[in-house]
Design a protein around this nucleic acid. Structure first.
Lengths: 187, 187
DNA sequence: GCTCACATGTAATCCGTTACATGATTCT
DNA sequence: AGAATCATGTAACGGATTACATGTGAGC
């Protein structure tokens, strides 16, 4: 059997957590895993078929009225595969693409005012992201209270702190650039 | 003229900062921008030709002994394009793919020991990354002292703090999971 | 003589996004 | 009647990685 991509494991994981079809997988991912691993419909539907072909999930027709719908569940093999991934060691995919920091790297080409403007818009972006996460938090907390599953809430709180990290960094830098010329460079 | 991808701006920026050819662009990127925007040779060389075709850079033969080498410089149009990008507003590309946090999201499927193992390996990965950045820091600091350009050093220090953020989060969570069963979920 | 750093490229492939396409049900 | 939500897919494209391919120069 071929190697699975990380996106496949998102699907397996979401099914294990109770999502039943492609639409539900996407809806849930959009308010949770998307902040550290985004997926889209055009990955999900073909992948569901591949996973079924590999015997890791099983789908059955589950029409809602006249609306076509396919309900998937993990097989034992799927459960096992998911567990293997969760406990696998060796390094995992870790990638950041941050155009804001990238611009900041080249910001010596800008004048003071432009530098501040860049920092400000970067901070604003992270503040928007934090607000979005904070809006989700109560729902996540409620789901934790029902299910006892703590990691979705923990990773959400981690995401909020993550945005806070960038917000703080921007704020501090903005202040430093505003203050009268400091002498040294680093922290 | 077609829209430029972010990678094109990395190249323009590196040329502005004094890199002269594809090899130098890559070498410098590998110890700086790579941590928030990775690039590879197979992007650089074709892109250099496209940028030359678009009149944003100019290349001339610059052989080193019998070794073929092409030296590029920014044109006025290239300088302008770079500046436009640095000051552009509207949201920029911001993407994180973190397989560790993703696994953590699904970690309710693991037992306590496996959860701790996951956190530990995640922390180790970020510690490796931090050490790598700390090794680069003196060089970056020296280059700041020579050139007066502060943002490369600032973004490097930011990268070090970034790794520190994840290390702290992991540590705190490890401690929490080790302590006798807490009652509540969130922060 | 060997290895490492310098230097430049192409081809195949993978992964992901965006746009396109369709249709039923529920809510207002 | 119309909009939003539920639900499933395909096609085209773009961006990036990996593997492949080649050759010089400098230092040991």
């Amino acid at each position: 059997m071929e190697e699975l991509g990380t996106t496949a494991y998102v699907i397996l994981g979401m099914l294990r957590r109770g999502a039943r079809n492609g639409y539900e997988i996407k809806s849930r991912a959009d308010v949770s895993t998307r902040f550290f691993w985004a997926i889209s419909y055009s990955q999900i539907y073909p992948e569901l078929k591949r996973l079924e072909g590999a015997g890791l999930i099983e789908g059955e027709a589950d029409p809602a009225g006249g609306r076509r719908r396919q309900a998937y569940t993990l097989t034992a093999a799927g459960e096992e595969t998911l567990h293997e991934w969760l406990t696998r060691d060796g390094d995992f995919h870790l990638e950041l693409r941050h155009e804001g920091v990238l611009r900041l790297f080249f910001a010596d080409a800008l004048d003071r005012e432009e530098q501040l403007e860049l920092l400000h818009s970067m901070r604003a972006e992270h503040e928007r992201a934090r607000i979005e996460l904070e809006r989700i938090e109560p729902t996540a907390r409620a789901r934790f209270d029902e299910s006892g599953d703590r990691f979705p809430l923990l990773t959400l709180d981690m995401g909020i702190a993550y945005q806070g990290f960038f917000i703080d960094v921007c704020e501090r830098l903005e202040r430093r650039l505003t203050e009268p010329q400091p002498i040294s460079g680093g922290t």
